[in-house]
Write a protein that binds this DNA or RNA. Structure first.
Length: 354
DNA sequence: ATCCCGAAGT
DNA sequence: ACTTCGGGAT
């Protein structure tokens, strides 16, 4: 019989070994790891929720330069924020980021609270992000549990439950709490270690223990998933959402040096971003040019987009709701969904210089 | 259940 | 070139 969960917990070797691993093998020079203010930690955490480290490194620096403080972000317009967020997806989070900044300024005098429970009340900050800010910026003791951490804990302790179920996740939260180091000076290394270990060693598809790389996992001899050859089966994913196909048209109306764009509603796909109108009344004389259908894949939906290009000789008599004529030169300052940006780039109507 | 993109896999 | 999949908050 292998060493049991209890033994492994009691000797607390997971926590100690992870801290040691972090100090030797972890990442120490990411932009948000130096000068860990709450604002910088928060921004990096929100970006990292949806985007890989390599991409965030770039976007984080640009964003910080544009909005150096929580006050600067709070007083910016939402369109400026969305424009800066453009291409990163999950635009509701950019709106939450903006709202959160405003709450911090008006309710907390521009200083993020240090209590994880208070942090959690802020827009876009859930339990895990609240804990990360509390640990990194304020040295508080709190447990994180993001996708990486779930995977690591589930594997090391051989948890085969369906992690899409609340019951299983609640167990993991409780477990994560018990693993926290007791010495305050260890909290940052431990928490960062949890993130780094999941991101670089105990990865989803090619974890170190089953790859031939140079990295070796410090938990190989105690990890239950490894012992029972369950690495490929943990974490268990049961989710099976059926994906629907949606066909839409993009009416690409050009008049002189202007394009007709529609500002999308604050809820739903591409919230608050500018896209092409999907239905329109046209003068009969206008000549239509159908472009190649664009396939765009989302979590639970596949969009088949049929762009129809129309070059107008006269302006429209009536501008449709939520639409505006946008100068080609102004396109780069707008929040555009990625397929719109790509399409415009293909037509050579927009250039990517920052 | 919904929301976007890009890295990784085939 | 194509498809699949990971990532938290609401």
């Amino acid at each position: 019989m292998p060493k049991t969960i209890m033994e492994f917990c009691e000797i607390n070797s997971f926590t100690d070994q992870l801290i040691a691993w972090q100090r030797k093998q972890g990442r120490h020079h990411l932009p948000w790891q130096i000068n860990r203010t709450a604002y910088r930690v928060w921004l990096s955490e929100v970006m990292l929720q949806q985007t890989q480290v390599s991409t965030v490194i770039e976007r984080y620096q640009v964003f910080l330069k544009k909005f150096p403080t929580v006050k600067a972000l709070a007083s910016a317009s939402i369109d400026d924020v969305l424009s800066e967020w453009s291409g990163m997806g999950y635009y509701t989070r950019a709106r939450n980021l903006h709202r959160c900044a405003q709450v911090v300024v008006t309710e907390y005098q521009g200083v993020f609270p240090s209590d994880p429970k208070l942090l959690e009340t802020l827009p876009g900050i859930g339990r895990s992000t609240a804990a990360a800010i509390a640990v990194f910026a304020y040295g508080q003791s709190a447990a994180i549990l993001d996708g990486n951490v779930k995977r690591v804990l589930a594997r090391v302790w051989g948890i085969q439950d369906d992690l899409s179920k609340n019951a299983a996740v609640n167990q993991l939260w409780a477990h994560a709490e018990t693993l926290l180091p007791h010495a305050p000076e260890d909290l940052v290394s431990y928490t960062q270690g949890l993130m780094d270990f999941g991101a670089t060693c105990c990865t989803q598809n090619k974890p170190a223990c089953i790859s031939q790389g140079s990295i070796t996992c410090p938990f190989e001899d105690v990890c239950l998933a490894k012992r029972f050859d369950l690495i490929k089966h943990i974490p268990l994913k049961v989710k099976k959402v059926k994906v629907s196909t949606v066909n839409i048209d993009w009416w690409v109306l050009q008049y002189k040096d202007k394009l007709l764009l529609e500002k999308r509603p604050h809820q739903g796909i591409w919230a608050g971003l500018w896209s092409f109108p999907e239905s329109i009344d046209l003068p009969k004389s206008a000549k239509q040019l159908e472009r190649q259908v664009i396939k765009h894949v989302l979590t639970h939906r596949v969009l088949n987009i049929r762009p129809i290009q129309v070059t107008l000789q006269r302006p429209l008599t009536k501008i449709p709701a939520n639409c505006e004529w946008i100068e080609l030169a102004d396109l780069k300052n707008l929040g555009l969904p990625t397929p719109v940006r790509l399409f415009l780039k293909n037509l050579d109507l927009i250039h990517d210089d920052a």
